[in-house]
């Protein structure tokens, strides 16, 4: 069985999905079910005071009993805020310690601040967290995050929510070749072929949110992404044929042609 192993735990699905930006919780639930994802990211936010107690919650739509929650630090711009957020998440989720660290550097591009990310990763790993870390596609930084003890490195394919696809496959390839922990492309996937390309490069998984939630039909796109990740993974394992520039090679016999 070809499983994704993160921090010693095996997952059959290599597609990780976010739970944000859906029309409602029913759409969230249906899309995530269709994606086959087992790990789902969630955000940690201040509760509304005076909210109706019976109001539906994410925990009902995507029960933590069925999915592995990956609380994130989206919106944090400093190591301190990210660390506080994940400590709250651990308390909220009864000691659950698998987390997604992301420290942003700029509200316009949501590009990660790697100096703050490295600082936060050090503290969180020492504090017992299993840190899956969002990173720029800098191979040196990715290696440093691994050496700190992060359990997965998650380079961007392009900017968060941009749907621009994989802009620098060469950097991703270097990160993959150097890594001893899972490499998961996080951010930038726009459509199914982007996910397939990431997996064909040798990524261990793909994390996405907007590519599914922002599709015209999120449930159908979730299905497409599931297949794309599987197809890309199988193509990677199968080992593609070499590319041959200017050197055609027919698939049919060159002998036995009629009229010769």
């Amino acid at each position: 069985m070809d499983e994704l192993v993160i921090a010693g735990k095996a997952y059959a699905s290599r597609l990780l999905v976010g739970t944000g930006k859906y029309k409602d919780f029913d759409e969230t639930r249906r899309a995530i079910e269709e994606s086959g994802a087992q790990i789902v990211t969630v955000a940690i936010r201040r509760t509304n005071i005076g909210q109706n107690a019976g109001e539906p919650s994410l925990l009902d739509a995507v029960p933590p009993s069925l999915y592995t929650y990956l609380p994130n630090t989206a919106g944090c711009y400093s190591a301190d805020d990210a660390i506080r957020t994940l400590r709250l998440a651990r308390e909220l989720l009864d000691g659950h310690d698998l987390v997604k660290l992301e420290v942003l550097g700029d509200p316009k591009t949501l590009y990660p601040n790697m100096v703050e990310t490295l600082k936060a990763a050090e503290v969180l790993v020492k504090d017992g967290f299993k840190v899956m870390v969002y990173t720029s596609d800098d191979p040196i930084i990715a290696k440093q995050l691994e050496e700190i003890g992060c359990v997965a490195v998650m380079p961007l394919a392009s900017l968060i929510g941009s749907g621009m696809g994989i802009l620098n496959p060469w950097n991703l390839q270097i990160i993959i070749d150097n890594a001893k922990v899972p490499v998961i492309v996080d951010a930038g996937v726009g459509t199914a072929s982007d996910a397939a390309i990431a997996m064909e490069l040798g990524c261990d998984g793909v994390l996405m949110n907007t590519a599914i939630a922002g599709a015209q039909n999120p449930v159908l796109m979730a299905s497409a992404m599931k297949k794309a990740v599987q197809a890309g993974r199988e193509a990677f394992l199968a080992g593609r044929m070499p590319k041959k520039l200017y050197s055609a090679s027919p698939s049919s016999p060159t002998t036995g042609l009629i009229g010769k």
Binding site: G18, T19, G20, K21, Y22, T28, T41, V42, A43, I44, R45, R46, T47, I49, S57, L58, L59, Y69, P71, N72, A74, T85, L88, A89, E91, L92, L93, I160, G161, M208, N209, T210, A213
Partner: peptide
Amino acid sequence: VPRSRFDETQLADGDKLEIVVAVGGG
């Protein structure tokens, strides 16, 4: 503040609290 200590935690003037939940996010 761990949940197990909610009962015994007496709040004092000027305390700043953050109360958070899990919401949809990517």
